[in-house]
Nucleic acid binder design. Structure first.
Lengths: 236, 236
DNA sequence: TCTTTATGAATGAAAG
DNA sequence: CTTTCATTCATAAAGA
């Protein structure tokens, strides 16, 4: 990252000092996001490879190993091309740029809430359009916002009821709402999707030493200085 | 990148409009840089591996090369592997907490998307079976998964068009953004198909020229369209 | 700040 | 095919 070329902008920090920051356009952010996503996908492939190889580890020498590696690498080229605009990117590289989401204004919420109560829960396509139109007078909104809102509203209202119904004592039923945070299953491919898109340094995945040891016959030419503890890729 | 913390700043564009840009601190830039560097290094290692393996393809299984590869992959597997399974899980143990619903792997998704694009819409019984078969090489899957996926994909792609908000443009910026990550209508060619599989770290960054260009006023921040010539991914 | 919570959004599956 | 439901993910807002 040739950060030095980044235009700088000073922003008034709260502390009274002046804080220098880098400025990027969304477009740039998007580009970056894609780059990272590509890498994330590569890593994902690595995981798969690893599993495959591990699974057949006892297979005799020859080389299922080099074979897969070869095809893997070959694939990468092809894959990276498609990856570019692929929706999968979204899952893999999930926003470097935090996309902001719609937040209903107080007025909008009020109206929605009222409609939900009286309305028989059926938003219907036509209705949605109508509602959206009305709400747009009270702030930014679009149809899918309305649609989603009703979907969520209904689902959550329902869930609450179930919880409120002590009918079910045993744990027979579905795992209620609060799934253990620990248990959260990470979606494959979401290397970067966790809470922090950018990993903290502490979480560093790769020890550069390990990598070098493992496969560096020759010195790495391009080494941009990997922070020895660099945690760059913390996917978890 | 903890984008949620990204302050936004408006910068006075030359054209007289206001241009919104993302602002990053040096620290954030540094983190990002590291992250990318790690990815770059991984990829470089891969290339080295590939070369080495290719060069001495006939080596027996016990050679140091495979060994390194193994450990390398293992390292990665350990770090990234728990994308698929619980950290608690050790070798041999199948994760008990079976996931109730199918989640396509990145590879599967890519394939599906591609088919959807070129595909003539209706997957037909026969086709489904075929596809399922192919996809099953990239992860757990069954016919109904494929069937559902196509159904959903079509329905949503359709809906999305309708939903595209007609009235939101001028005033409130980012909030709008019904951008569809899904919309890969734009088929990018194989930007990366050529063989420089592995990007060099130096190339990972933005060229200052790009940045400056991007900062041009006429460049609307919300631009969802991907520059077709995007140097974006030039590293690959 | 960092952590937690509430909720907008995405999506697999199923009903209509 | 279209609409709805259920579950999960990600983030804006709130809490500590």
């Amino acid at each position: 990252l040739q950060a030095e070329d980044q235009p700088q902008q000073h922003v008034n920090g709260g502390g009274g000092g002046v804080l220098y920051v880098k400025v990027m356009t969304d477009e740039q952010m998007e580009i970056l996001r894609k780059q990272i996503a590509v890498y994330a996908t590569i890593c994902e492939q690595l995981v798969e490879m690893h599993k495959a190889i591990t699974a057949q580890q006892d297979l005799a020498g020859a080389d299922p190993l080099s074979l897969s590696l070869s095809s893997f690498l070959e694939c990468i080229g092809v894959r990276l091309g498609n990856l570019y605009c692929d929706p999968l990117m979204t899952s893999a590289g999930q926003k470097i740029t935090a996309r902001q989401r719609w937040t209903p204004t107080a007025t909008q919420l009020q109206i929605l809430e009222r409609m939900f109560d009286q309305g028989n829960g059926t938003p219907s396509r036509e209705k949605i359009k109508e509602i959206t139109c009305e709400l747009s007078q009270h702030g930014q909104i679009n149809e899918s916002n309305v649609y989603n809102w009703f979907q969520n509203r209904r689902a959550r209202s329902k869930r609450k009821q179930v919880v409120n119904t002590p009918n079910n004592n045993a744990e027979s039923e579905v795992e209620t709402e609060v799934e253990s945070p620990k248990d959260k299953k990470t979606k494959p491919g979401n290397l970067l999707s966790q809470q922090n898109v950018v990993p903290r340094a502490e979480d560093m995945c790769f020890q550069s030493s390990e990598i070098h040891h493992s496969l560096e016959p020759q010195c790495n030419k391009v080494e941009p200085t990997i922070p020895s503890n660099a945690s760059a890729l913390k996917p978890l």
